[in-house]
């Protein structure tokens, strides 16, 4: 994408290079003193293509959050390797930004200072300070710059936390059930926001969720994971255009396919909205 066009559409922040994540033979065991050892991840292989929107979908205990934490560098794989653009991952890095289920804004900082944290941590706040305002605009928090986190709603806090991760221009944005704590209305609004930001920023997104509709609505690819032991069951394509309609027959076809993979009958799914 041409830099000039990018500046026109998204202010002065240029579109970022997207990264490719390769997960090779990754296993994660939790050794227990009492009781059997837990296999959180069993030999997982995954190639996350640059610029795509990936969802990790599965019930709790399927290892989706563990996999995400290992990609973020907050946890280590017992076996196997993970690379970002062929570079092995060792510990957290600002190029792999993360948004947690809880916004975890620093309560002692204003919204503006929170969003600037990444630049401050990397010691480049002075040179890049002007970008902070761009990201505040991008997530629609103008006017709340000087406000403290406890004064804003959960949805706004999650927007701020998204901007805080984006200000570092991550090649990959990891989102661990970021909308899990929000009410249904805010959730749908935030889904639109995330898509808009992703489309304008062009970064790779890995999105953890246990909501089938959400994953179909958002993703290019859905990584279906099953528990005990946590593993990838299938990676399915979502070849739908955007914006998507939750009522389109194609949407329902993919939804039914996922339900079948999890062992539910689609008829059951039609009568009960999971």
């Amino acid at each position: 994408m041409n830099r000039v066009t990018a500046e026109k559409t998204e202010g002065i922040v240029p579109v970022q290079e997207a990264g490719r994540i390769r997960v090779q033979n990754v296993s994660r065991f939790f050794l227990q003193d009492s009781g059997p050892d837990v296999i959180a991840l069993n030999n997982v292989n995954l190639d996350i293509e640059p610029g795509k929107f990936y969802s990790l979908l599965g019930p709790s205990g399927c290892g989706k959050s563990t996999l995400m934490r290992i990609i973020a560098g907050l946890d280590e794989a017992t076996l196997g390797t993970i690379t970002l653009d062929e570079e092995p991952i060792r510990g957290p890095h600002f190029l792999r930004g993360m948004v947690f289920q809880d916004p975890t804004l620093f309560p002692w900082k204003t919204i503006e200072e929170n969003i600037a944290s990444g630049l401050e941590a990397r010691g480049i706040l002075k040179e890049k300070k002007h970008e902070v305002q761009e990201y505040i605009r991008l997530v629609g928090l103008e006017g709340f710059e000087k406000v403290y986190p406890h004064q804003i709603s959960g949805g706004m806090a999650q927007r701020a936390s998204l901007a805080r991760a984006l200000v570092n221009h991550p090649k990959v944005l990891l989102m661990d059930e970021p909308l899990g704590a929000l009410d249904a209305f805010t959730r749908m609004q935030m889904q639109e926001e995330i898509l808009r930001i992703w489309q304008s920023r062009g970064t790779t997104i890995v999105f953890v969720t246990h909501d089938i509709d959400e994953s179909v609505y958002l993703s290019d690819k859905i990584v279906i994971m099953t528990p005990r032991p946590g593993k990838i069951k299938e990676v399915i394509d979502v070849p739908l255009g955007r914006p998507r309609s939750r009522n389109h027959p194609d949407f329902w076809r993919i939804r039914s396919r996922i339900l079948r993979i999890f062992g539910f009958s689609p008829d059951f799914a039609d009568s009960y909205h999971i």
Binding site: A72, G73, L74, G91, P92, H93, F94, R96, G97, M98, F100, D102, T104, F106, S117, G118, E120, A121, R122, R164, A165, N168, L174
Partner: peptide, 18 residues
Amino acid sequence: VNKSYYEVARTLGANVRY
């Protein structure tokens, strides 16, 4: 201190001093 503050800070590129 809530451990998740450290996790967030580390994914933002924080070093030990930060």
